[in-house]
Simulated scan of single mutants.
Amino acid sequence: MAQPKKKADRNLDRSSWVAAARKTLIEKGISGISLRQLAEELGATTGAFYWQFGNLEELLEEVRRDWADRNTAPFTEAIESAGDDGWQQYLAYVSVLLKEDQYVPAYDNAVRDWAHSSLRTAEVLRETEALRIEQLRRIFIALGFEGRAASVRAHVTYFSQTGYNAMQVTEPREERLLNVPYYADVLTDRQDLLRLKTAQDVSNHILADKRAKS
Rank of each mutant, 00 (worst) to 15 (best):
A48T: 03
Y50V: 05
W67P: 05
W51D: 10
E123R: 15
G86I: 13
Q88D: 15
Y93H: 06
R70D: 10
V104T: 14
E62D: 10
F75W: 04
A73E: 00
Q52D: 05
A82N: 12
Y107D: 02
D113I: 05
G83I: 14
L98E: 11
S117N: 10
D84A: 13
G86C: 13
V94F: 01
F75D: 01
Q52I: 03
L125I: 14
V96F: 04
Y103V: 07
D84I: 09
E80F: 03
Y107R: 03
G47Q: 08
Y107P: 05
L56M: 09
Y90G: 07
T121E: 11
Y50P: 02
A122H: 15
G54I: 02
E100G: 12
T76K: 06
R112Y: 13
A122P: 13
E100R: 15
S118E: 06
D85F: 12
L97W: 07
P74Y: 00
I79Y: 01
T76V: 11
G54Q: 03
W114D: 07
W114Y: 07
R120Y: 01
E100V: 14
W87G: 08
A106C: 02
V124L: 00
Q52G: 03
L119R: 09
A115N: 12
Q52Y: 04
D108L: 05
W87Y: 15
N55S: 05
T46R: 13
H116R: 07
P74D: 01
F53C: 04
E61N: 11
N109G: 10
F75N: 02
Q89V: 08
Q52S: 01
A44I: 00
F49P: 02
S95T: 08
W51L: 12
T46N: 11
D101R: 14
I79P: 04
T76P: 05
A44Y: 01
F49K: 03
A73W: 01
T76G: 04
L60Q: 06
T46E: 13
V63A: 10
Y90K: 08
A68V: 09
F75L: 00
G54L: 04
A115Y: 10
G47I: 01
Q88R: 15
D66Q: 09
A122N: 15
A115W: 09
R65Q: 15
A92V: 11
A92T: 09
K99I: 09
D113C: 06
V94G: 08
V111M: 05
A78V: 07
A68M: 06
R70L: 08
V63N: 07
N109Y: 04
V111P: 01
R112A: 14
L91W: 09
T46L: 03
L60I: 02
Q52R: 02
A115F: 11
W67F: 15
A92M: 13
V96N: 06
S117F: 11
E62K: 09
G86A: 13
V124H: 02
L59R: 04
A82G: 13
Y90F: 13
L119Q: 10
W87C: 06
A115S: 15
F49G: 03
T76M: 02
D101V: 12
A82F: 11
V104H: 14
Q88H: 15
L59K: 02
A68D: 08
E57F: 04
R65C: 12
R70Q: 12
L91I: 14
V96H: 00
D69G: 06
D113T: 03
T45D: 08
R120A: 02
W87V: 08
E77P: 00
A68K: 04
N71D: 04
L98W: 03
Y103P: 03
L91S: 12
E80R: 10
